[in-house]
């Protein structure tokens, strides 16, 4: 589903290379996790894939179902089925959460040549998805992420994911700033979306999120490269011994 080959990325403003050749394939129906120390390039990978400004791709490819996504605008990537759950969801005063989600869903549907969803059907859809995440009507009515706690913001990300039904979901440190209860709720929301046709790439520092969202494959990223790939046991190893051993092992 998501195929990344030899991806090299510089920061645009500084002459600094962040990704030094990333190879990664996420198959449909699978959950891949990326772990790695601070500054290893995990978040950069998620931003580059979603089309954020400020990065220059100097080599390699990234395709979604065979389609080159690196040349697409962010909105085209979203319509193609890519979704990034932000590490720091943005507050947008003056734009209602419902308006935001409906505009996004209809824009994606339009881009895919589908009919727009009616207001009534949309309301039904959102209510149903919001129930799983225990999100109140008030949270749906408020401006996007304004006045939301850290946990509420992350739940709102997962709600958007549930409503937009992307093919490929990237979760960028979704566990950061969450207490145990919030993490359980978020994980429940994510697990409800696991499906044979959908791929996940879960970026995290810690093993604890992976207790709730069980990965099929775990990658370790360090200094802009995937240095080791294994099963769920690799996450446990990191939790126990840190990254130093793995780095030493592959050096």
């Amino acid at each position: 589903m998501l195929e990344i080959k030899g991806l090299k990325v510089d920061l645009e403003d500084e002459e600094k290379t962040i990704l030094k050749g990333v190879d990664l394939t996420v198959e449909a129906g699978k959950v891949h996790a990326i772990m790695g120390p601070n500054g290893s390039g995990k978040s950069t990978l998620s931003y580059v894939l979603s089309g954020r400004d400020g990065y220059e791709v100097t080599g390699g490819t990234a395709t979604l179902d065979g389609e080159d996504i690196l040349d697409m605008e962010p909105e085209e990537r979203a319509a193609a089925g890519l979704f990034l759950a932000f590490q720091y969801p943005v507050e947008i005063p003056g734009v209602g959460n419902m308006t935001f989600m409906r505009t996004a869903l209809n824009a994606q549907r339009k881009a895919r040549g589908q009919e727009e969803i009616s207001a009534a059907d949309f309301l039904k859809l959102v209510r149903e998805k919001a129930a799983t995440l225990e999100m109140s009507n008030d949270m749906l009515k408020r401006p996007v992420n304004v006045g939301f706690s850290g946990g509420e913001k992350k739940r709102n990300e997962i709600l958007q994911m549930a409503v937009l039904e992307p093919k490929m979901c990237i979760l960028d440190e979704t566990d950061s700033g969450l207490d145990v209860d919030a993490m359980k709720l978020v994980s429940k929301g994510v697990n409800a979306l696991r499906d044979a046709g959908r791929g996940f790439l879960v970026i995290t520092h810690y093993q604890r999120l992976l207790d709730h969202i069980k990965p099929d494959v775990v990658h370790i990223m360090s200094d802009g490269r995937i240095i080791k790939t294994g099963g769920p046991e690799l996450a446990l190893e990191v939790e126990k011994n840190g990254y130093a051993d793995i780095k030493a092992e592959v050096a």
Partner: peptide, 12 residues
């Protein structure tokens, strides 16, 4: 905010 909206599929 602009990027956030676009990343959700809303054209620029």
């Amino acid at each position: 905010a602009l990027f956030y909206l676009r990343a959700r599929g809303v054209p620029k």
